[in-house]
Amino acid sequence: MNKFVDYFKIGPVFTYFIRVFRKPDPNAPTSQNLRMMHGINRISIVMFLFCLIVMIVRACTR
Rank of each mutant, 00 (worst) to 15 (best):
N2D: 12
F17N: 01
V5N: 08
I56N: 10
L52H: 05
M55I: 07
N27L: 13
N41Y: 08
N27H: 07
I40V: 15
P26Y: 04
F17M: 15
M36H: 04
I43C: 07
R22L: 13
F17H: 12
R58D: 11
P26A: 03
R42I: 10
I43D: 01
F4L: 14
T30W: 05
M55F: 07
A59S: 11
V57I: 14
K3S: 15
Y16N: 09
I18Q: 02
I40A: 15
F8E: 00
N41P: 01
T30Q: 15
P24W: 04
M36C: 02
M55A: 15
M36D: 06
F50I: 13
V5Y: 09
V13Q: 05
M55E: 09
C51M: 10
L49G: 01
R42P: 01
I18H: 01
V54Q: 05
V46T: 11
T30D: 11
F48G: 06
F17G: 00
T15S: 14
F50V: 13
L52M: 12
A59E: 05
M36Q: 08
C60I: 04
L52D: 08
I53N: 02
P12E: 01
T15W: 04
I45C: 08
L52Q: 09
M55S: 13
S31D: 05
V20Q: 10
I56W: 07
F48C: 08
P12N: 02
P12K: 01
Q32M: 11
L34Q: 13
F4P: 00
T61V: 15
P12Y: 03
R62L: 12
V20K: 04
M1T: 08
S44E: 06
R35F: 07
